[in-house]
Simulated scan of single mutants.
Amino acid sequence: MSAPRSAILVVDDEPAIRSIIRAAVEDDAGIAFEAANAATGLEIARRERPALIVLDLGLPDQDGVDVCHALREWSAAPILVLSARHSDTEKARALDAGADDYLTKPFSTIELQARMRALLRRARMAPVPGGDAPLVRGDVVIDLANRQVTQHGMPVHLTPTEWDLLRALVTHAGRTMTHKQLFDAVWGRHHGDAQQYLRVYIGHLRRKLEVDPLRPTLIVTEGGVGYRFADHH
């Protein structure tokens, strides 16, 4: 873990395992944050935005697979899953939920360090806009991790549907999302007119976020195709 020092979050309910991982992280010149359960882990992840998360699947308050899903709503930080369970089904569930790698307990410190280094190298790719760091566009600040949008420093209230639509656009900032991609992301498999649904809710978002809703600069229409969240500052 070359400089600058990487912050690693360890979420495991066994103090002995946490201390082993902390020692391995610090030996590689990193900083370790510890959490004994899912709730604390998610709270620290939102606050500290760690470069890597080491996550035990068998947590006392929530299944580790659900924690993976929750993290992936806003973070691109690599997740290294630890588990005492050896089945391929468990590994597949964790990887399908967004984990990047899997290590079965008991594990060697050398292998743990090597896998963490590999994940950190891969993680130096582009972060999730608005998730790994809040997205700032003029007076609008979008923080996906904390589900917060502010304009001129004041909170902007969004309905759950508006929030889901904004999150889909922001996590793909700079890329055109088709009507179908956005409709599937927000409404799932429900039947309906994707273009009409989107036109209504894009209108709501523009009224709340754009300086001039009739001349949008944040949520841009790509005629006949879909919408794009602007990637410029």
Rank of each mutant, 00 (worst) to 15 (best):
1 M>F: 09
2 S>F: 15
3 A>Y: 08
10 V>Q: 01
14 E>C: 09
15 P>T: 13
17 I>M: 07
20 I>Y: 00
20 I>S: 03
23 A>C: 13
23 A>G: 13
25 V>P: 09
27 D>C: 09
28 D>H: 10
29 A>N: 10
29 A>V: 04
31 I>M: 02
35 A>T: 11
38 A>F: 08
41 G>Q: 10
44 I>T: 04
44 I>R: 01
46 R>K: 15
49 R>S: 12
50 P>L: 08
52 L>A: 10
55 L>F: 13
58 G>I: 10
58 G>L: 14
59 L>N: 15
59 L>C: 15
60 P>D: 08
61 D>H: 08
61 D>V: 07
64 G>Y: 15
71 L>K: 00
71 L>M: 00
72 R>K: 08
75 S>W: 00
76 A>K: 02
79 I>M: 07
79 I>P: 06
80 L>A: 11
83 S>N: 14
87 S>K: 06
88 D>G: 03
91 K>A: 14
95 L>T: 08
95 L>W: 15
97 A>L: 02
104 T>D: 01
106 P>M: 01
107 F>R: 05
108 S>A: 12
108 S>W: 04
108 S>V: 11
109 T>S: 10
111 E>Q: 06
111 E>K: 07
112 L>I: 10
114 A>D: 02
114 A>E: 08
114 A>C: 01
118 A>V: 09
120 L>V: 14
120 L>H: 11
121 R>H: 12
123 A>P: 00
124 R>G: 00
127 P>E: 11
132 D>Y: 04
134 P>K: 03
135 L>H: 01
135 L>W: 15
138 G>H: 02
139 D>S: 03
139 D>K: 03
141 V>S: 08
142 I>S: 02
142 I>W: 04
142 I>L: 05
142 I>V: 13
144 L>D: 03
144 L>A: 03
145 A>V: 00
146 N>I: 00
153 G>D: 09
154 M>P: 03
157 H>W: 03
157 H>C: 01
159 T>H: 05
161 T>V: 13
162 E>Q: 11
164 D>M: 03
166 L>D: 13
169 L>E: 00
172 H>G: 02
173 A>L: 01
173 A>Y: 05
174 G>K: 11
175 R>C: 04
176 T>R: 05
177 M>H: 05
179 H>K: 05
184 D>T: 12
185 A>K: 07
186 V>W: 11
187 W>Q: 04
190 H>K: 09
191 H>Q: 10
192 G>A: 09
198 L>Y: 06
198 L>K: 05
199 R>G: 10
200 V>G: 07
201 Y>C: 01
202 I>W: 12
207 R>C: 07
208 K>P: 05
211 V>K: 06
211 V>L: 05
217 T>F: 03
218 L>R: 15
218 L>K: 13
218 L>P: 09
220 V>G: 09
222 E>V: 15
227 Y>M: 07
228 R>L: 14
230 A>G: 15
231 D>L: 11
232 H>S: 10
233 H>N: 09
